[in-house]
């Protein structure tokens, strides 16, 4: 990893630590998946390796689908390190609840469109939370953190993907969760059309029935 200076710690997440760095004169982010001592070394290496390989591949696929993701500068599989472009902007998580309702709705429609593009292209993100969406000052939204994603065209995977976003909205943006998810679906519908969206929605309902998600049914 020459021409690389590891700078300040941007974020110590659960899965990886992000450092601000300089790479050939560009501002970059170093994403290091550090070993997790709670799990066996063999399992840990396998998981970190798999995610380090998969993440840049899926970011590339996302670009092909028309979804903005950071440029990849370097991948070091042996050390589970990825060096990528630094995106100027804010996490959607930080801004969503403070936006005026109209802007919030518009942002969610944009997000829904991005998810639609991914799904049409056969990519599921695997960790759709508002922390993994970066809003630039010009209004452009980029998606990051594809480590849990996969190439998958199945309705099941797409349903789980959207279900996770719905849940993330409910736990983190509980005041606006329903309106936001409705707007997300509107953007999604613009890409997939009504029929495709209905199929995914039906799948989400199935997933909810399968788990412990549905609202209480009163029983005699």
């Amino acid at each position: 990893m020459d021409n690389l200076t590891r700078g300040t710690l941007l974020k110590k997440g659960a899965e990886a630590s992000l450092y601000l760095a300089e790479w050939h004169g560009r501002r970059a982010v170093i994403k290091m998946r550090l070993p997790k001592t709670y799990r066996p070394t063999q399992l840990d290496q396998q998981i970190r390796r798999q995610r380090t390989v998969r993440e840049p591949q899926l970011m590339h696929e996302a670009k092909l689908a028309g979804v903005s993701t950071p440029l990849i500068y370097l991948v070091d599989v042996a050390n589970a390190v990825i060096v990528m472009e630094y995106l100027d902007g804010k996490q959607v998580k930080q801004v969503l609840d403070n936006l005026p309702p109209e802007e919030r709705r518009d942002l969610c429609v944009v997000i829904g469109g991005l998810i639609g593009k991914l799904h049409v292209h056969g990519v599921v993100h695997g960790d759709l939370t508002t922390s993994n969406m970066i809003l630039a000052s010009n209004g452009k939204v980029s998606l990051v953190d594809f480590g849990l994603g996969e190439k998958n065209t199945e309705l099941e995977a797409q349903g789980v993907d959207l279900h996770l976003l719905k849940r993330a909205l409910q736990s983190t943006h509980f005041q606006n969760a329903n309106a936001c998810f409705t707007a997300v679906l509107e953007g999604y519908r613009q890409v997939l059309g009504s029929e495709g969206t209905e199929r995914v929605l039906e799948k989400i309902r199935e997933i909810e029935r399968r788990g412990r998600y549905i609202a209480d049914r009163q029983q005699p």
Binding site: G13, A14, E15, K36, R39, L43
Partner: peptide
């Protein structure tokens, strides 16, 4: 056990960071 417990520990850590 190692797989199942690692999975619940990982999601717990994610929620803890969050």
């Amino acid at each position: 056990q190692e797989n199942a417990f690692s999975m619940v520990t990982e999601v717990t850590e994610r929620a803890l960071a969050h």
